[in-house]
Design a protein around this nucleic acid. Structure first.
Lengths: 335, 335
DNA sequence: GTGAAAGCGCTAACAG
DNA sequence: CTGTTAGCGCTTTCAC
């Protein structure tokens, strides 16, 4: 493995010059730059991030903490983060908290703290007091993506607003008998988002004088399968709503499946609206309040890079945008 | 940020002793060890991976290359890799090749080559000749997970065998009119697995004298939404198979949804079998040939760690196991 | 323009 | 058991 010193020796010049030439710093003649680069290429030279980081304190890496990589939303965010970071020349160090949250707390903190990363992006993860204190001690930029975390600056949609918008659509169509598919995903560790959505659903429904039976509040666990089962059960009873508001698109797709299984039609018998903007929504003709987790990830990544490189930290972010995508799963009731 | 030197100064001892004490190396009195650890804790000492790596050449990090993090299979594998690596004290450096494959080739190689990682785990990614050559030059353990890559040692199921087993189940039930939901996922970059499964489906079907109409070969793109649409179309025609063999569970769940939408029953009118062992399969009563991508990821991670730490490389891995999970979506035809 | 020297934080021989 | 002495590969003053 070629080093800067070997290149220097090969050309009979000093290491400093090689370093400067390779990094395009001023003060090296163009001829030498070309020569150095050629030799570096020929020798298969590759800079050592560790060595460079030792002196500069910069690692060109940012940590991404995620509660469960296998969940759609999180993998989308991470994907966006990765793309933006790669474009900026930074690596992604992944910390999947899936199940090893309590077990691995110590290990997580230790490894995190190894000066591996220049900043941290936290995706919808809840931490202990102790961990939060450690983050503070880190003294590096930290930005959260997803459900807002009071301790961090957060990039994400306003969960109240997005649900209110979904409700506006359903109420506007004339639905007054509404069911809700929500619940909590135990593994995702973040309950705030789910609670906010459910709360606003209820509040808005009641304010509009809509009928919401207790049995119409379904626990879908933010998972397609669970939502499908819960919905199937709902339609095995003798009364059901004209509209189903789902706290996520994954659950909405499960619900649609269950409605079909029950021999009902969407939207003729039941309207279904989702939230999130899942990739498969189009195939299911699903009306949804779409947000863009990838874009949020990219945004967070760019912001974090800017701060690493000296930009003054933004104190508070605008809520991420969302838009109604109207498709075939919603219509006026009783058609 | 406390360093080893500061701790040494604080206690009036040498850096080496501190280093040894902290790492639990032999040759330090228990008393001193305790003292050192106490001071380190108090000063909030955290080791610098970069500095340690510089001398030892070990980074305690492994790179994970993945074609599209947002796909179920890959995120499962990465999740498993992460867990095993975290347990072994290693960090995960993620390289999501999603879309930036051609654009980012150079950046990918460069960053990979920065001696950041001690080994590489490649998940179902296809590389150019040039990239492969660079991997060789890296001289570090490389293991592939998922569809077998001829250039790498691979951990994964035998795609022929798993499809053959699925077919055995369907044929054993008496199905002789079979449809196939498969296709290719353009974004995943790995076509071998899809091709193998389709090939074995065809071969096995023909060998059993089963009827397979060309229109029954559906392109589901390995995506739930696309599979749903393709299946919906199939059932809008005037002839359809008694059994549907799906190359993945995600597609199978989409197919089930479409079958319900068409007013048919599973398994009474159509049997459906999937492959993979998706988490939601149970909710859908889906019969499947289950594999365990998380376990495969863990296995690869453990193997790679062993090799980093000096174990002699295993030359070839056993194919990963799979088992039939028989649930309610399959039954004898014509019930 | 270019070079020499010092040092980033840690580990790894050697001595004692 | 503990300390000394060299570096690891790179960047960064400061001279020339």
């Amino acid at each position: 493995m070629a080093t800067i010193g070997q290149i220097a020796a090969e050309l009979g010049i000093s290491k400093s010059t090689v370093s400067r030439a390779l990094r395009g710093l001023p003060g090296v003649s163009q001829d030498l730059i070309d020569e150095v680069k050629a030799v570096a290429e020929r020798m298969g030279y590759v800079p050592s991030a560790a060595a460079a980081g030792l002196t500069t304190g910069r690692n060109y890496a940012v940590g991404v903490v995620v509660p469960a990589l296998t969940r759609w939303f999180y993998s989308e965010v991470v994907s966006g983060v990765d793309r933006a970071l790669a474009a900026a020349g930074y690596d992604v160090v992944l910390y999947d908290m899936d199940r090893n949250h309590d077990v691995g707390t110590r290990a997580f903190a230790r490894s995190l703290l190894r000066k591996r990363v220049d900043a941290l992006i936290v995706v919808a993860t809840v931490f202990t007091e102790h961990e939060l204190a450690e983050f503070d001690a880190l003294e590096m930029p930290v930005i959260a993506v997803g459900p807002s975390a009071p301790q961090f600056r957060t990039i994400g949609v306003d969960d109240h607003a997005i649900m209110a918008a979904a409700m506006e659509h359903m109420l506007g169509l004339g639905h007054r008998q509404l069911g809700y598919v929500g619940g909590y995903d135990e593994e995702s560790l973040s309950l705030a988002s789910a609670a906010d959505r459910e709360h606003t659903f209820m509040k808005t429904a009641l304010a509009a004088g809509a009928l919401v039976q207790p049995e119409w509040m379904l626990a879908g666990g933010y998972k397609q399968g669970a939502a499908m089962r819960a919905t199937r059960e709902l339609f095995s009873r003798d009364s059901w709503p004209t509209g189903l508001v789902c706290a996520s698109d994954e659950m909405a797709m499960g619900a649609i499946c269950a409605i079909h299984a029950a021999g009902k039609r969407v939207p003729e018998d039941v309207s279904v609206i989702g939230i999130d903007g899942h990739e498969y929504g189009a195939d299911y003709e699903l009306t949804t309040m779409a947000q863009n987790p990838q874009a949020q990830g990219e945004w967070a990544a760019r912001q974090v890079v800017a701060e690493i490189e000296g930009a003054t930290p933004v104190q508070e972010f605008e809520p991420a945008p969302f838009t109604l995508i109207q498709r075939g799963s919603t219509a006026a009731p009783g058609r």
